[in-house]
Each structure stands twice: as structure tokens, then as C-alpha cells.
Design a protein around this nucleic acid. Structure first.
Ligand SMILES: [Mn+2]
Ligand SMILES: [Mn+2]
Ligand SMILES: [Zn+2]
Ligand SMILES: [Zn+2]
Lengths: 143, 143
DNA sequence: TTTCTATTGCAACTGATTCTCAATTACAAT
DNA sequence: ATTGTAATTGAGAATCAGTTGCAATAGAAA
């Protein structure tokens, strides 16, 4: 469970599993969609959960660090995230027309990337692949 | 020549090839390294070229639009660019230790990505692949 | 020349993120 | 239960990249 993972991560760093951090975590895992810090704040406020903007901005890097959350879509001017626990790594197809985001995972692609890194003596830790273009619906409309 | 490309692009849009735009273009093509808008400004100031921050920020999107420049390294909080004319498309290996950036191009990788898009009925226009990790030198030091 | 539109620099502005700081809390040790 | 210590919090100020409004300027076309 993500609570346990986060809790243990915090303990290991001498940090506390406070109710604010718990609340942010819960909210982050309440949807499978991508989100940004402001989304989070607004949704929490709506639910009557009292948490400050600062706490959200302070909690997200912790969630990143312990691997429960990843940063995605560096297209916009602000950061977007998605929780990753319970999902494997995946890449994204981003429709620049309607904003739809399609997840993509290919073992073959991952292996090929790894092979190319080896050739350069590069030890890869993580990667981001974002393919921009038109989704099937938008593409159909354009014709 | 990039001047010609930019000039024709501007004309087509009813815009002018002013000396400021020409100066930004020249500076962008004066190095093969990645840069950010502030780099550009500082370098131009040093050379005594008078141009405003606003003009740089106004010119870069035009260079993007006509394909002479691409945005890279979506890691940092501010945008980074590289000129692409005279180079083909390529991806990046980024050493998170020393900051070294290694260009990578693989026909096979590109084809595979394309194939995966087809499977989703996605018409890809562009993509960014950034692999983060340790370069050979930094990796050696870690042992 | 007159008119028109695009362009410029500057400074003010914006919006996202980070920081500062005083007040609060958790919790381990008395 | 009380205290000491360090972590945490919210509020707002500060920062920083990027954008915008505007008055002055420059050119091209008429
Ligand atoms: Mn991948
Ligand atoms: Mn995703
Ligand atoms: Zn679409
Ligand atoms: Zn390195």
C-alpha cells in the first residue's frame, strides 16, 4: 500500500507521517489521471480538507523521491504529475489538438533504449518519452 | 542557409526580417551547444549587440515554428533550446551528475516509435526522448 | 509626404514555485 | 505530566522565467 511505502520512506529520513502529508498522498492516489499542484489544492479545498499550498509543494518532491509519483508532460509552464504505484513505467502520446494523453508501454522499445545506452557506456536511471501529434479522433476531424 | 529559411518564413507570415531578429538568429547559430534565453541575452550583450529580453523571447517561438530550433531538456525550471538546422533530429542522454549531454540517434528506435504510434492510430509530429543517468566518466568515479 | 502596420525597448505584470518566519506540534527524555 | 528539541505548518513575501501593454520608431506602400 502506498501509505506504508510513504510512511517507511519518511521514517527512514527522520520525517513524520503527518496528517497533511497523508492527505496529499491520499488525494494523489484518488485518481489515475495526471494532475498539477493546483488541481490538487482545489480538489482538496472542495472536499473541505485544509492544507496549504506550501504543504502540497513540499510533499510532492517527497513523493517523487520515494518513487510513488513521477513528473510528466514538461510541455506546459507548470509541472504535471502522475502517481506510479500500481502502474508500471510508461511513455506518453500527447495530442496537441485536444490534449488527450495516451499511455504507451513497449518492452521492445525499453530494451532497445537500454541497448543504445550500453553502446554509449551510459547507465540509464530513468527516461521520458513524449510523442506529440494528433490522436485518432483529431486526426479524423482534420480530413 | 538558415537566414534564407527564416527570412522566407517571416515573409510568408507578413513579418519582417529585422536586424534584431537577424541578430538573435545569428547568435543561436553561433554555437552547437544547448542554450537558454538568458544565455543568449548575456552573450549578445557581451558582444555589444543591443537587443531586449522581450525581443529574444519574441523571436524564439518564431524560430521554433519554422523548425530552425527545438526545445530540449525539459528537466530544469526554464526552457532550453538548440538549433537543429544542419543537424538531424536526435535524442539526448543527460548525465544527472556532471550535466553532460550526449546526442543519440537510432534509425531503428525512430522506426519502432513510429510503429507503436501507428498501432494507436496516432499521427506523430514530433517527440522528445530524454534518458537520465550517469555518463561513462561519472559512472566510473562512482565505483 | 502621408498613412499604415509591424516592431522595438522598457517597465509593469503574471503565474508557478520557493522561501521566510513565527506559531504549532510530535515525541522522546526526563 | 513536563520539558526540550527538532520537524512541521500556514500565510504571505520573494523569486524567477516568461509575457504583455504601451508609447516611440521604422519601414513599406500609397
Ligand atoms: Mn519508456
Ligand atoms: Mn501517464
Ligand atoms: Zn486529440
Ligand atoms: Zn557525467
Amino acid at each position: 500500500m502506498e501509505d506504508k511505502i510513504f510512511k517507511e520512506f519518511l521514517e527512514k529520513k527522520g520525517l513524520k507521517f503527518t496528517k497533511e502529508r497523508a492527505a496529499v498522498l491520499k488525494e494523489v492516489f484518488s485518481t489515475h489521471n495526471h494532475f498539477d499542484p493546483d488541481d490538487l489544492l482545489i480538489k482538496m479545498r472542495k472536499k473541505g480538507i485544509r492544507v496549504s499550498k506550501a504543504s502540497i509543494y513540499r510533499t510532492l518532491p517527497l513523493l517523487l523521491e520515494c518513487g510513488l509519483v513521477e513528473q510528466v508532460e514538461k510541455i506546459d509552464k507548470h509541472a504535471h504529475y502522475e502517481h506510479t504505484f500500481g502502474h508500471g513505467h510508461h511513455d506518453h502520446l500527447i495530442c496537441t489538438k485536444c490534449g488527450r494523453i495516451i499511455s504507451l508501454f513497449s518492452e521492445k522499445l525499453e530494451r532497445l533504449q537500454e541497448k543504445l545506452c550500453k553502446k554509449e557506456n551510459f547507465r540509464s536511471i530513468s527516461h521520458t518519452l513524449e510523442i506529440r501529434g494528433y490522436c485518432s479522433k483529431c486526426n479524423a476531424k482534420l480530413k
